[in-house]
Structures are given as C-alpha cells and as structure tokens.
Amino acid sequence: MTPKAMDAPPAVFRVADAWRGEWMGPSVFRRGGSTLHYVGPADANTSAIDLPGVLLPGFTDHHVHLQLHPADVLEPLATGGLSRVIDLGGDPDVLAVLAEPDPFAAALEFAGAFLTAPGGYPSDRAWAPARSVREIASADDAELAVAEQLTAGASRIKIALHADAGPVWSDELLAEVIAEARAAGLPVVAHVEGAGQAARAIAAKVELLAHAPFSEVLPESLIAQAVGQGQRWVSTLAIHEPPERDIAIANVRAFRGAGGELLYGSDLGNGEQPLGLNPAELEALAEAGLDETAVLRALVGGFGRGRWKKRLTWMPARPTSILDLAAAVSVSVGDVESLAG
C-alpha cells in the first residue's frame, strides 16, 4: 500500500456484497493496517464508508513464468484482477528482485530454478532463461540446490519429471530432493509429463502438481491416493490442445469428484495470454465442471483460506457467469477507501 494509506487510521466500510466461501450479501469490513477484517452483516445504522461493487479475497495465479514475458507485468497483472502470482521456474536472483514489495503491483512468490536431472527438462529448451535450470546429480547436489533457492527467497521448490523430454531422477534421488526441500520447510511442486510420472510424484507425496496431469488418464485408485494425502493440482487447462486438453479435463473431473482441491493457474509466459485473469482458462474450468463457487475457491487458494491482507479483489457487481470474473481488479487494502470516491 502507499505510505499515506499505511498511516491512515482504521476505517469501517459497508459493501453491497462480499464473498467469503459464499456470498454474504451487504457486509461490514474494518481496515486495520494492511488487513481487512470481516465484521459481519451490514446494518443500515452502521456508521461506515459506503463502497460500490463487491469485495472478494485476493485472487492468485498459481503458475506463471515472469521471465518469459517481454515486459514488466506485475502492475498490469494487478489491474487485471490478480493480487498474487506464483512463479514456477526462473532465475532465482532475478525473481528475488521482482518480488520486492510494490504497492501498485501483484505480490510475487517464487520457486526459483527448475530442479532437474542432468540433461533433463527444460535444460535443452531455448526459452529457459539463464540460471533458471539447476541440474542435480547426487544427494549433495540436492542439498546445495535447495539451499540456493531458499537463500534467494523461494517459498517452494519446483522439480521436473518429464520423461518424454530427457532424463529424470531415480526414485532414490527423487526422494533425496524432496527430503531436502522438506528439511528446509518448503513444499514441492512437480511438473509431471510422460507415462508414469504423475504416479511417481504421487508416490513421493509431492504437495502440488504444476499442471493437471495431461499425459494419460489416471486410474481412480491413483487419484484417490493423491486426494487422500492432500495433494493439490494447478489447472493450466487452456494451454493444451486435444488430446492433452481432454485428458487433463478428464483427470480434473475425477480429481474433484474424489474431493481434490484445484488451484487456478494459467502458465503465463507459455504462449500469448492476457495480463490478468485469463478468460480461456476460466472457460476451460467451466468445461471441466467447475461452477462459480469452485472457480472462486480455486482463485483464492481454497475454501476458507482467502487472503484479505495487503491486496483484495473488487468487482463492479456480483458475477452472473464465470467469465464475469475477468472484470475483477486487485486493490490495495490501504487504498480501498478510494473506491468510494
């Protein structure tokens, strides 16, 4: 938020509608520092600043690659409705600089470099920026590589298991990499591609898949195992063409049917995409059977865990369709009062 807003005294706001896992109707919020607190249903007699539109927790794109975009995009991403983005593969030192707080931009969290086997994906890709790939050949390498990402400020570790594009680790070395990440207190995000790689990530109890699996339709028993251990999947459905898109959507339907949690992710940097919420990804989520509530949960990071700190989401009215969400704007908590004027 801006320095002026940080110094502003607490304020009470009345909004026509708000979403907190469900639509709450007219609601009262109180700002305290960089956090917006839900007070309760609005009372006509409450002394408050009236805000137009509706408020929601901050939206997150859980899979972007900022270095693959030619311009500085964090401010446009905020204007396009995103309060936070998660970069899943880039030069950790470059990302650390981009992640410095900016009151006008979407917040950035990052994984740092892709950790991969020697010669593994994406080490041979022309699009991969310098220092965005860290090859690991031993347990000692794994310890050092995780420490490098942690030192740069990484909040998770990204690993590549792409058997169709080059070597992948043995099960033993995969376990070593994951153990080092957990010892550092970092969750592991896996890119899985190729037959059997999703099964390996699930067996290794990786916390998050960077893409809904798209190489093969997973058996019900494997999906149940993933759900049972709390694994979450990032969607990225719109980047695919058939048959991979159809496979990914089938897996998402089964995963959600078994109780799995899906997170919104666009893989920004992969092909031409809008800066903000991607209507094509929203359409793909609807095709996969998600209704408005499920999409909102995917955007805020799950039910009951929406972010009301630093930045939040504002819309001119309650959406009437999933595509209406593309009209969202990210707003600083400190500057929320500006909506009234």
Score class of each variant (00 low, 15 high):
residue 263 L to T: 07
residue 254 A to C: 13
residue 305 R to E: 12
residue 253 R to C: 09
residue 272 E to N: 11
residue 289 G to P: 04
residue 264 Y to E: 02
residue 279 P to K: 00
residue 293 T to L: 01
residue 283 E to W: 03
residue 267 D to C: 13
residue 312 L to E: 11
residue 272 E to A: 15
residue 305 R to K: 09
residue 298 A to D: 04
residue 276 G to T: 11
residue 275 L to Y: 13
residue 285 L to S: 08
residue 263 L to W: 13
residue 266 S to M: 12
residue 262 L to M: 15
residue 300 V to T: 13
residue 297 R to S: 09
residue 309 K to S: 15
residue 256 R to P: 05
residue 295 V to D: 02
residue 288 A to K: 07
residue 279 P to C: 00
residue 297 R to W: 06
residue 309 K to H: 14
residue 288 A to V: 06
residue 283 E to C: 09
residue 256 R to Y: 05
residue 255 F to H: 08
residue 266 S to H: 10
residue 295 V to F: 05
residue 256 R to H: 05
residue 256 R to F: 02
residue 285 L to H: 02
residue 255 F to D: 06
residue 289 G to V: 04
residue 263 L to Y: 14
residue 309 K to I: 12
residue 307 R to Y: 00
residue 314 W to Y: 13
residue 269 G to S: 12
residue 286 A to Y: 00
residue 284 A to E: 01
residue 303 F to E: 14
residue 285 L to D: 07
residue 253 R to W: 02
residue 281 E to K: 04
residue 297 R to D: 14
residue 290 L to F: 01
residue 304 G to L: 04
residue 276 G to R: 09
residue 303 F to Q: 10
residue 287 E to F: 01
residue 307 R to M: 06
residue 266 S to A: 15
residue 288 A to F: 02
residue 284 A to S: 14
residue 274 P to V: 05
residue 287 E to M: 06
residue 259 G to Y: 08
residue 282 L to E: 04
residue 273 Q to M: 14
residue 277 L to P: 07
residue 270 N to L: 11
residue 291 D to P: 07
residue 308 W to L: 14
residue 252 V to G: 13
residue 308 W to M: 11
residue 259 G to V: 04
residue 253 R to K: 15
residue 271 G to Q: 07
residue 271 G to A: 12
residue 279 P to H: 00
residue 278 N to A: 01
residue 311 R to S: 14
residue 289 G to N: 02
residue 297 R to P: 03
residue 294 A to N: 05
residue 297 R to G: 11
residue 299 L to N: 04
residue 261 E to V: 13
residue 302 G to I: 02
residue 262 L to F: 01
residue 297 R to Y: 05
residue 273 Q to G: 12
residue 288 A to Q: 05
residue 305 R to M: 08
residue 311 R to Q: 10
residue 306 G to H: 06
residue 268 L to Y: 10
residue 260 G to S: 09
residue 257 G to I: 10
residue 255 F to V: 04
residue 296 L to V: 03
residue 309 K to Y: 04
residue 271 G to C: 12
residue 278 N to C: 10
residue 307 R to V: 08
residue 265 G to D: 12
residue 308 W to K: 03
residue 294 A to S: 12
residue 261 E to Y: 06
residue 261 E to T: 14
residue 292 E to L: 15
residue 313 T to W: 12
